[in-house]
Design a protein around this nucleic acid. Structure first.
Lengths: 224, 224
DNA sequence: CGGTAGCTTATTGTATACAAATACCATTCG
DNA sequence: CGAATGGTATTTGTATACAATAAGCTACCG
């Protein structure tokens, strides 16, 4: 990560995820260059990448804005994610190695520990959950699929979704992982795909329920 | 398309699609800059875009190569495409407008004319076929989905696939479009999705059959 | 009072020079 | 003869200056 364009990429991405740059806000190359301590050239590189990953949108005259996601957009992203992760699970069931299975088990163990502690360790849950899904994707063995999933997972709102889980949802999530592991053990791609579909769709509804009728998602516009 | 980076993008993309640049071949920024008549800066922009669209791959030390696709890669691309286009059809069935339906009908009419002429007009078929699918995608109304589909459709080999169709496949393709139109008329998303799945999968098998046991796909390596 | 033309400023696009990194090749040492 | 090492050439990365374009503002005219 020593290249300036990588630093710029991570810096800008973090600013978006942390909310330091708000959705809808215009961003100027030179301002970002100063913030990142590099010249405009690597910033432009970073912006192109972030644009491809839908973190950033550009208007007709090439000015850049932090992407702004409506609830409909979000549901659609979850639907695509459910479809793609189910496909990943189906492929993974046929290809997964013993080592990968063992790693999945270990992460799901860590998840169980995180949520059964006296005070649930949410960051730990999130970290191992992320790695669990990453291993499924790795076992699916498709670069293209990985790239597409990155587009629908790595969105600001989606990233924050798991924080909305209540204890009930955390436990269900853990048990769904367990079921996925059994499907993998039996090399049953259809079962794995079905479990994964439900897993992702429940995640969406957990998010939607937590935010029903709130204004959080659309709070960005200053002018009506 | 007056911007230099757009010219570079189109120029390089065409060179890849036409085979002027062969799969696996290394490409250097400065050489491309001369070929396109621009400086390296817009070429670098174009390369980033083409890399995001998987036309180009970069090795660990950032050198660029024309993407090289194995038959497995290709089948996987078709599978993803079938899944995504089926999803697009499902969405389109719920949202399509009368105008869009009329345009679909008109393109499918043109396709019928192209393949029932005394000598079938393949370029005409390809053009209207492309527009037909573009309208379905437009009716699906999802920018993200459109971007993902572009990634799996706009590949050199995929783009050439329709040329492999024999008359039997051309007719079937036309009739499948017809059936899709009826599904749309009835706003039946599941039906539309099922038709589209078969439509794309048949396309893959038509390609695979035409190329069974040939060396075309892997003919790029010069050294064993 | 509203709108539009033209000027001014802000922002992105491009070229180019130079820096850094990597690959390639030759030479030498074991 | 093979492997390691060093130097050289090639290629990509970055900064910066300048060009082109779009936005915003002001003043003028209807």
């Amino acid at each position: 990560m020593s290249r300036a364009s990588d630093r710029a990429y991570n810096h800008i991405r973090n600013m978006i995820l942390s909310g330091e740059l708000s959705p809808g806000e215009q961003i100027r190359e030179e301002a970002l260059a100063e913030l990142c301590g590099v010249s405009r050239t690597p910033v432009r590189d970073a912006l192109r990448r972030l644009e491809a990953e839908l973190f950033i949108r550009r208007n007709e005259s090439q000015r850049s804005f932090v992407a702004d996601w409506s609830l409909d957009d979000l549901e659609e992203a979850f639907q695509l994610r459910a479809m793609l992760e189910a496909y990943a699970a189906r492929r993974a069931a046929k290809r997964i190695s013993w080592d990968q299975l063992a790693r999945l088990r270990s992460h799901n163990d860590a998840i169980r520990q995180a949520i059964t502690a006296s005070t649930p360790d949410i960051p730990k849950f999130l970290d191992h959950n992320r790695q669990f899904h990453a291993i499924v994707l790795e076992a699916a063995g498709s670069e293209r699929l990985a790239g597409m999933l990155a587009q629908v997972i790595e969105q600001p709102v989606v990233l924050r979704t798991a924080r909305q889980y209540d204890m009930e949802n955390l436990k269900r999530s853990h048990h769904e992982h367990d079921e996925l592991l059994i499907a993998f053990d039996n090399r049953d791609g259809e079962w794995a795909a079905a479990v994964m579909t439900g897993h992702i769709r429940r995640a969406f509804h957990a998010y939607a329920a937590a935010h029903s009728g709130d204004t959080e998602i659309r709070r960005t516009d200053e002018a009506a």
